[in-house]
Amino acid sequence: MEIQLESETVRGGIGMTDISDLLESAKSGDRRSLSMLISAISKSGESPSINTSKGWVLGVTGPPGSGKSTLIGQMVRKWASSGERVAVLALDPTSPLSGGSLLADRIRMEGEDDLRENVFVRSIPSGKTPGAISPVLWPICGVLSECGWTRIIVETVGTGQSEFRIAALVDRLLLVDGPDRGDIIQAEKAGILELADVIAVNKSDLPGASSAAQHIRSSLSLASDDNREVVLVSAKEGHGIQELVEIIEKCEPQNTRGKMMMMERLISEWDSILVSHPEIDKITSELCDGSITVREAIEILVSSVRDGGS
């Protein structure tokens, strides 16, 4: 316990004043401050007050290996060269065993030298709740927008709850799939296809891509009022990127999401209260040796939250 307290003082100690100072200096264009601000928010969970939302947030989801990172790299280049300031938040899983993470997604996203001023890439480990969307992402997207980043892209891990939950964070959602992987059928089952605003079938340079796109189109056409676009792209060859970017720009985000977004935010916050509960370790041990039931564990957790315990 003593050890944890020590580490808290080393890591934390970030007050709201520091955060608002950093925000002011980040808004004036200081990149070092922006970067430190994101760390401060990640560590403290505090969110500064944001007045306006100038840009919008695009979520990119899809199965592992479908080419999300490479496709994002291509879109970043298009947007940055047309004068937009693009920030990418790449989510990567945290190892449940060691608590460490290996974040390598930015390898595939680097833009050309002359665009670098307009591109900001930050890797975010998923943290204590693997697969979920960390509640710190909301304030991070907020400050990026406040600091003049007009296109904010959030890339999911590609598996687990985050696939679904990302929809709660973003203004527009892009679903990426590869040719003939059959994954889109899985996506349909999981309800992700319903949430997407735009669907891209990547790797159009490989056989099977156009039939995969056709398959998705026919599936969407089952609902008469569904006019969402399915775009064929090749992130590797750079084909179809312009068209995809234009479609994302003009797509009208589904306005039915409001309540769902709030529900997901609530669940994310709740999850983080749960996993950072001071007695979570003891309670899980007791569950393991059978001395309490899951119901009883919930009772203990909820009552201590009610008493302001966490």
Binding site: G99, S101, L102, A104
Partner: peptide, 8 residues
């Protein structure tokens, strides 16, 4: 990473 750090 296995030592618990975030590695980029």
């Amino acid at each position: 990473r296995d030592g618990g750090h975030d590695v980029i």
